[in-house]
Amino acid sequence: MKIIDGKNLKFEYVKWNEEGQVESSMKAVDGVNLDIEAGDFIAVLGHNGSGKSTLAKHINAILLPTEGSLYVDGKDTRDESKLWEIRQTAGMVFQNPDNQIIGTIVDEDVGFGPENMGIPKEEIWRRVEKSLKAVGMWEYRSHSPNKLSGGQKQRVAIAGVVAMQPKCIVLDEPTAMLDPNGRKEVIQTVRELNRAEKVTVILITHYMEEVIHADKVIVMDKGKVVMQGTPREIFSRVEALKHYRLDVPQVTLLAHELKQSGVDLPEGILTIEELTQALEKCRSGKKLR
């Protein structure tokens, strides 16, 4: 079942001058077709200014397309009467962990979304407990968010979205401001949600290591989708990725370089194990000869 269906999406940032005339305009999203199946883990890659964050904000109806259409779980995002339903269906986690936590205590923050939805008290507490446990932050329920690490704060933010029981979670560069440990925590949490709760995940990032486990990777550049496919398909095109100035994992780059030097390796190596195994094969092949 399709959960997100976007056709020829366009979004234009228009800058007005003081007389109210159009001074300049910039197409941040330019004719994107989105087609996401429920339960998928989708990664959207692209450098800053590629339009990936603008696209993400459309899914939650924070931004509305200038042209084209976007349906979230069958609901048109331009339909104002469906606005709160859409926001509940597609939750959103942002980049800066400090700027999206509203509550002064962890559990109060997680309850913020359900409170807005007008859910009865008992149900709110049930959901708060469930979502804090799902992200592994239950022990911290009565802490102040200010005393948590970046990764922990992002997990609280994720719990806040999970408590609204969305079908889909959009994460807009949730790891950009975190250290490697925090990054790992967040990605593991998201993967677990996708696996156990069958929540559709749309992860916007510029860290390539984070997309290895995605079902599908979408690469954006200048507001357009320029590459699309499984991680392996994407990573086997090292030159194209370099062209879009994206970071390729070191192992993949190393494999690519070795291949260029004549070593017989398969395309799209993603992990250290894959590379060492492939190299082992090469060596034993040579020995046999």
Partner: peptide, 27 residues
């Protein structure tokens, strides 16, 4: 201002639309 802007967006994304129709977890 930047934080306020971010926060407003985050609150909206989590369905905040004023006190109307809101329940409380600590009534």
């Amino acid at each position: 201002f930047r934080r306020a802007n971010d926060l407003a967006m985050a609150m909206e994304a989590r369905g905040y639309h004023g006190g109307e129709g809101r329940t409380k977890m600590h009534p």
